[in-house]
Amino acid sequence: MNKLLLFFILLGLLVLTFFISLAIGSGNVPWSDFWRILFNPDNTDPLSTIIWQIRFPRLIAALLIGAGLAAVGCAFQGILRNPLAEPYTLGISGGAALGGTVAIIFISKFNLPGWVTTIGLPLAALVGALLSLFLVYLIASRLYFSVTGLILGGVLLSFIFSSLVLLIMTLAQPDEVKSTLLWMAGNLSMVQPDLLKISSVFIIPGIIILFIFGRDLDVITLGDEKAQHLGIKIIQIRQFLFVISSLIVAFCVANAGMIAFVGLLIPHLMRILMGPKHQPLIWGSALAGGIFLMLADTVARTVLTRTSFGQGVELPVGVITGILGGIFFLAFLLRRKNNVIN
C-alpha cells in the first residue's frame, strides 16, 4: 500500500479516535454539550471537568504509551531478530514494574511528598527495566539468541519479578497493596498530569530517535557480521537503542503499569500492511499503537459501567490488551509450527 496514503489514513483515524474517545465515557456528556465544552473549556462546569481534567489527560497517556510501546516493539524485534520480542514478553515491563512497586511502597512508607513520586517512580522503573534487559540479554546470549531462548528467558524473569512484587506486597499495608495492584495491572485511570508531562519529554524524542535509527535496524536484522560489513558499529548502536527503548518502557510503566502485547500486536499488523522496513514501520506502529490503546482504554472504562452487573467498575486496560494480545500470540505460535525458522 502507498505509504503516504497510509500515513494520512492513520493520522485521520487517530484524530477521529481521539475525539470519539473524548466524547464517550461512564459519565454521560450529551453531544451538544460536548461541542460547546470542546471549544470553550470552563472550569466551573462539571461536564467540562470530566472532559478536560479526567478524559483528556488519560487519552494523551493512552496515545503516548501506545505509541511508545509499539515503537519499542519494532525496535526490539529488529535488534533481536525475533518476531516475538516486545517489552512485556522479554520481562522488561516486569522489571520496570518491580522497580516501580519498590518505589511506591517505599515512598508511601516514609510519607514522602508528591514530587518524589513524580521523579522516583520512573527512575526506579528505569533501573528495573535496565536490570531485566541486562539479565534477559545474558540468558539469551547463553542460548544463542534463539527465538525460544529469548522468550523463555523473558517469561522466567517475569515470573521471578512478579513473585518479588508479591513478596513486597505481603509486607506492605492493605491500602498500598490495592493501589499498587491496580497500577501494575496496566491502568490508565491513575495517570498523574505532572508525571505525564515529564514522560512526554522522554517518550516522544525516544520514538523519534528509534525512527532515525530505522535504517540501522534494517541492517541489524541481517546479522551482526553483515551489519558490520555494511559499516554499522553494531555493539555501540545496539546498546544505545536498548537504553533508549528501556527509557521509553520505563516511562510507560511508571505511568500505567504493565500493558501487555501492544508492542507485539501492532508491529505485526503494520508489518503486514507496510513491509519490514523500519523507518515506515516505526512511525506506522507509533500511530497505530496510539489509536489501539486509546480504543482499548475507551472500551476498558465503558464496557462494565454500561452494564448492570459492573456497577461503575472500570477495567484496567491491561486486561483488554492482555486478552487480545494473548490470543494473537497463541495464533502466531500455532501458525509458526508449519514454517519453523529456528
Binding site: 531478530r81 534494517d218 536484522t221 557480521e225 559499516g231 554499522i232 522496513k277 525458522i341
Partner: peptide, 24 residues
C-alpha cells in the same frame, strides 16, 4: 563481504534488500 551465513527472517522486498547495500 558475502558471509557464509546470513539472517534472513525479515521478508524484505528484493529491491529494498539490495538498497541496504547503499548504507555506508
Amino acid at each position: 563481504v558475502l558471509p557464509q551465513f546470513l539472517n534472513l527472517s525479515f521478508p524484505f522486498l528484493v529491491r529494498d534488500f539490495v538498497a541496504l547495500g547503499r548504507t555506508p
